[in-house]
């Protein structure tokens, strides 16, 4: 059975290759820093489950120190110019899109089928993790097709991947680190403290005030935590259920649905949601890390106001 651990081994092998190629990139003045960073990531993916919590903690701190103090650099050697790429693209035509579109295609088909395929009574893939396993399979299939089309050796793809990784740099671990911070926040009781403050200090005597506090609270708390899933239980236990549903007789389904979507408005405007907001800015080579957030702010504000109106109109009516 394919499970998540197999995918982690694949990722570990990839980062180990990145470490090797980084160290060999003489055009990068900080190649040893990059090498160490990718090697630690490889270690985490390959052996993270065997080394214990404190060793993992030390590993995280080492990654943070390398990434946070400018130990990583970028090579300058450009492997191909835009003209060369345009010439190759003209020769290859639309076949170039095949591998790129194969990834989402296999990811989606795999998500719905992998858990059901059985080999000798065992499912082919761990049914709880089909989405990630299907994504990994899609990527591997796309890579094989792309290598075959380009008649390139696997090292070429790994080295191109390593160049992209060097470009992303320390931002590559930001989403995972923020997810980990959320878990530490939960352990430290940050959410409970926020809920306590919201309910004791806000005047929530009227239905509209409760709806306003709940929707805006979901957005603000999501901005802090970087993720609406962390905000939802806290705000709903503090304001949603006791006030909107129990005191003012609102509909729990409408409250829950629109409440979560109010949280998503917060996700649009926070650097804490790094995988949605910061990583795309880095991937698209935008010099301003917050460029994506900036274009999302007007939409988020208008939509949050819309959610408050929608909830106050709908929640007490159905």
């Amino acid at each position: 059975m394919i499970d998540l651990h197999d995918v982690y081994v694949l990722a570990g092998a990839m980062f180990a290759a990145f470490a090797l190629f980084s160290v060999r990139d003489r055009s990068n003045p900080r190649r040893l820093g990059n090498g160490a960073f990718w090697a630690l990531l490889a270690l985490s993916f390959l052996f993270g489950s065997n080394i214990g919590d404190v060793a993992n903690g030390v590993l995280v701190v080492a990654l943070i120190i390398l990434g946070g103090t400018g130990a990583l650099g970028r090579g300058t050697a450009e492997r191909s110019t835009s003209e060369e790429r345009s010439r190759r693209a003209a020769r290859r035509g639309n076949a170039l899109f095949v591998p790129a579109l194969l990834i989402p295609l296999i990811a989606v088909v795999g998500t719905f089928t992998l858990g059901r395929i059985k080999l000798g009574g065992m499912p082919l893939a761990d049914p709880r993790e089909v989405t990630l396993i299907a994504l990994a399979l899609g990527i591997v299939a796309a890579l094989l097709v792309a290598l075959w089309q380009a008649k390139a050796p696997p090292q070429a793809a790994l080295d191109e991947g390593r160049r992209l990784a060097d470009m992303i740099g320390w931002a590559l671990i930001l989403p995972q680190l923020l997810a980990a911070l959320g878990a530490v926040f939960a352990l430290a009781g940050v959410g409970t403290a926020v809920g306590h403050v919201a309910t004791t200090w806000l005047p929530l005597g009227r239905p509209f005030a409760a709806v306003l506090a709940y929707c805006v609270g979901m957005a603000l708390f999501t901005m802090v935590m970087g993720n609406a899933f962390a905000a939802f239980p806290v705000m709903t236990a503090a304001i949603g259920v006791p006030l909107i549903v129990q005191r003012f007789g609102g509909d729990p389904a409408i409250m829950g649905a629109i409440g979560m979507l109010s949280g998503f408005c917060g996700t649009l405007v926070t650097p804490m949601a790094a995988n949605f907001n910061i990583v795309p800015a880095v991937l698209l080579e935008l010099p301003d890390r917050n460029a994506v957030i900036k274009v999302q702010i007007p939409t988020a504000l208008a939509l949050l106001a819309g959610n408050v109106v929608l909830m106050s109109v709908l929640v007490f009516r159905f």
Partner: peptide, 14 residues
């Protein structure tokens, strides 16, 4: 990030 090698290769190919 497993996607990086295949995207890198495809971008190299134009």
């Amino acid at each position: 990030w497993l996607i990086l090698p295949v995207i890198g290769l495809l971008e190299h190919e134009g």
